[in-house]
């Protein structure tokens, strides 16, 4: 299955891209993250939350959406 992953703020500096499409077989977000940590080892030390189809989700959530986003701490206002 194909999924778009979006990166923002300091996370996009670390990945050197703002989004990428990946093929995945994992069922949960935490499993998918293990692969991302292999690709981007420094990601492990970063503070971020995950949104699936524009809603915040927990790590044990099932991947059911089209779009994931890795969101570093918010700084609006």
């Amino acid at each position: 299955m194909e999924l778009t992953i979006k990166y923002f703020g300091m996370i996009s500096e670390l990945t050197s891209c703002e989004e990428e499409k990946i093929l995945f077989e994992q069922t949960t977000i935490s499993e998918l993250l293990k692969d991302l940590f292999k690709k981007y080892p420094d990601l492990k030390n970063k503070d971020f939350r995950i949104a699936q189809d524009r809603k915040l989700v927990s790590l044990d959530s099932l991947i059911s959406g089209q779009e994931l986003a890795l969101l570093p701490p918010f700084a609006g206002g």
Partner: peptide, 27 residues
């Protein structure tokens, strides 16, 4: 409204210094 914006909205801020280096702001 302002307090909700600070906590809930995914906006990111790159603080740029005089020497063009930067850091990421956190609310």
């Amino acid at each position: 409204i302002v307090e909700r914006i600070k906590v809930d909205v995914p906006v990111f801020g790159k603080e740029i210094f005089e020497d063009t280096s930067h850091q990421w702001k956190t609310n």
